[in-house]
């Protein structure tokens, strides 16, 4: 998945997140959550799985339970708490919000894994080149400054000027080192700008180079995305997927949008699984 053109990927991510975040239909949200879980399982390291489950499952219940405690809308009271009704609708709505929120969080996590800074910069570079250059420079500065901070603090320690006797001393020592680093970074930025000027930055007609291409694969994926998305959006516009929780939970009607969006949110999983199977097949042949 990560080798597709960043524009296609970005479009896809935005579409999934926006639809699952802003439509209130449980079928759409559950399929987004499922897609998110499967996608996450593929892109994150297997060593992180336990930690992720430990984080997201309790999170799910916390979100799900808070809603009925605070919201007392709904027509079907289950029981009373401190004189306030706790309704079935609020319970279900809480669950739906949890599905949506966890789904969006998982998709954002996948986004962070897939849309690395260079892809992000590519998208920005095409639309706002100057801004993207500033971003790229800042991204280069961050590790450089971190390293310098470490160097300075070690040098100061070896002079006995970095004290860790008390908390205030510690903070003061940190602050001194940080200030020295700020000063160093500002001075060094001038050399960076000279190097840019020496290589002709500021001439008219600057172009933007990127390693990414828009190939046939990208076109196919984009076409699939557009078709599935089109069916989904059509379903939303026509109201087929309209769904209410209050005052009473409405019933679901069948819509082609569900099938389309189901496939849509499972796309990364399908692509990855297909490649994994192919890979195995080739390996077995060798």
């Amino acid at each position: 998945m990560k080798n597709y053109n960043p524009f296609v990927l970005m479009f896809y991510f935005l579409a999934v997140v926006i639809i699952s975040a802003f439509s209130e239909n449980p079928v759409l949200q559950i399929s987004a959550l499922l897609g998110g879980i499967l996608f996450c399982a593929i892109v994150t390291k297997s060593s992180e799985t336990a930690g992720n489950i430990g984080f997201y499952v309790p999170m799910f219940f916390i979100i799900a339970v808070t809603n009925p405690l605070f919201s007392h809308n709904g027509a079907t009271p289950l029981f009373f708490l401190n004189g306030n009704p706790v309704t079935l609708e609020a319970f279900v709505y809480g669950g739906a919000i949890a599905v949506m929120a966890i789904g969006v969080m998982l998709w954002c996590k996948c986004y962070s894994e897939i849309m690395t800074t260079d892809k992000f910069l590519y998208i920005f570079g095409k639309t706002v080149p100057k801004l993207s250059l500033v971003l790229s420079m800042a991204l280069k500065f961050i590790p450089m400054y971190k390293q310098q901070t470490r160097r300075v603090s070690r040098a100061q320690k070896a002079m006995g000027l970095y004290s860790s006797k008390s908390v205030t001393d510690k903070i003061r020592s940190h602050a001194r080192v940080f200030m020295a680093m700020v000063s160093w970074s500002l001075e060094n930025s001038i050399e960076t700008s000279s190097s840019m000027k020496a290589r002709g930055y500021g001439l008219k007609g600057r172009t933007n180079f990127a390693l990414f291409k828009f190939g046939a694969d990208d076109l196919i994926l984009l076409a699939v995305i557009v078709i599935l998305l089109g069916v989904t959006v059509f379903g939303i516009i026509t109201g087929e997927t309209r769904f209410y929780y209050y005052p009473r939970i409405s019933t679901l009607k069948f819509s082609a949008a569900y099938i389309a969006f189901g496939f849509f949110s499972l796309l990364p999983f399908i692509i990855e699984a297909k490649e994994a199977i192919k890979w195995r097949y080739y390996v077995s042949k060798i």
Binding site: V128, K130, V134, A138, I142, Y145, S189
Partner: peptide, 26 residues
């Protein structure tokens, strides 16, 4: 963003903006 894109900014200012951004992130 667009105004920033259109306006002539000297190279030094550009680098300083990047540096200040990096510092605030750190």
């Amino acid at each position: 963003f667009l105004a920033f894109e259109k306006r002539e900014t000297s190279v030094r200012r550009l680098v300083l903006i990047a540096a200040m951004t990096a510092l605030s992130v750190i």
